Computed example of a mutant assay.
Amino acid sequence: MRYQHPDRLQAAILDWAGTVVDFGSFAPTRIFVEAFAQFDIEISLEEARGPMGMGKWDHIRTLCDQPAVTERFMHRFARLPTDEDVTAIYERFMPLQIEKVGEHSAPIPGALEAVADLRERGLKIGTCSGYPQVVMQKVVELAAAAGYQPDHVVATDEVPKGRPSPAQALANVIALGLDDVAACVKVDDTEPGILEGRSAGMWTVALRFSGNFLGLSWAQFQALPAERLAAERERIDALFEDSRPHYLIDTLADLPPVVDAINQRLARGESPQGC
């Protein structure tokens, strides 16, 4: 039996917050600030955004390990933050997240049209998120009411190891019955999400403006002057550089032409692992 290189994409594996819903990725970040505040630990929205894309327990652990946050914890409790402390913060975070995720659940402008366009090109739509299953259930329900129903969803606690591990992306490959990881494109607004796709052997597309790195609302984004947009594009491209996305685009609305470009490269025998 001989290996048959795919000549077309079969699926897009999409992130949720900052990619398809919640322009600016506000739902998770603001809740981190509130959860830490319940322990009298102040963190900024910018600090909360730092590890975005990871599973939420790992995100909190990473925040606690940041020197500035560790110092505040030491000042408040006279000891280093332990895994038990991380779990306690996580247990405060979860009810807040479930309660408030609906406040930032609107589809990103152009996302539903882009997904419809991908389906017309014959692609299945898989999804994964840093949210655990209990939060994803509500996110999926709200998205369905708004007209978004992907073919599969994988929450971070449904696999042994969350992003940047490839487990969630690969779980989509299995569930969707796909033939080859090279026939998949992973789309995300965070470095862990791009590394997830890279580690899974997929094509990867990073989103500049709808997610975590810009961190603005749709209205704020629309109001940015051209000069500021150009500067932000350059800054964000540099932030993504180490994760090596194959493509960078502004929002999901720009994805269909990238799919066409990838299909052309696949037809020429190129693979995501080789570039």
Rank of each mutant, 00 (worst) to 15 (best):
1 M>T: 12
1 M>Q: 12
5 H>G: 03
6 P>W: 00
10 Q>A: 13
13 I>M: 07
14 L>R: 00
15 D>Q: 04
18 G>N: 05
18 G>R: 00
18 G>V: 02
19 T>Y: 01
22 D>G: 07
22 D>Q: 04
24 G>D: 03
24 G>H: 00
25 S>T: 10
27 A>P: 00
31 I>D: 02
35 A>Y: 03
36 F>M: 09
43 I>D: 01
44 S>C: 11
46 E>L: 12
46 E>D: 11
50 G>Q: 14
54 M>D: 07
54 M>I: 11
56 K>N: 09
61 R>W: 12
65 D>H: 15
65 D>A: 15
69 V>E: 01
72 R>H: 04
74 M>A: 10
75 H>C: 10
75 H>G: 09
78 A>L: 14
79 R>F: 07
81 P>S: 10
81 P>D: 06
82 T>I: 09
84 E>G: 12
84 E>Y: 11
85 D>T: 14
86 V>W: 03
87 T>Q: 14
89 I>L: 07
89 I>N: 01
92 R>Y: 03
92 R>N: 07
97 Q>P: 03
97 Q>I: 03
98 I>G: 00
98 I>K: 09
106 A>K: 15
107 P>S: 11
116 A>L: 10
118 L>N: 00
122 G>I: 07
130 G>A: 07
131 Y>F: 15
133 Q>N: 14
136 M>P: 02
138 K>G: 01
142 L>Y: 03
145 A>F: 04
145 A>N: 09
146 A>F: 12
146 A>P: 12
147 G>M: 06
148 Y>I: 09
149 Q>F: 08
151 D>R: 12
154 V>E: 03
155 A>H: 12
158 E>G: 07
158 E>S: 11
162 G>L: 02
163 R>D: 11
163 R>K: 14
163 R>C: 10
165 S>A: 15
167 A>C: 13
172 N>Y: 08
172 N>Q: 12
174 I>K: 15
174 I>H: 15
175 A>S: 13
179 D>Y: 04
180 D>E: 13
184 C>W: 01
188 D>M: 04
191 E>I: 14
191 E>L: 13
191 E>M: 11
193 G>A: 03
196 E>Q: 14
198 R>N: 08
199 S>G: 13
205 V>F: 01
212 N>Q: 12
212 N>G: 03
212 N>Y: 03
219 A>Y: 06
220 Q>Y: 04
220 Q>E: 14
223 A>H: 04
225 P>C: 05
226 A>V: 14
226 A>S: 14
234 E>N: 09
238 A>W: 14
243 S>L: 02
245 P>S: 05
245 P>G: 09
246 H>Q: 09
249 I>A: 07
249 I>N: 04
250 D>C: 09
252 L>I: 13
258 V>H: 05
260 D>K: 13
264 Q>Y: 10
266 L>F: 08
271 S>R: 11
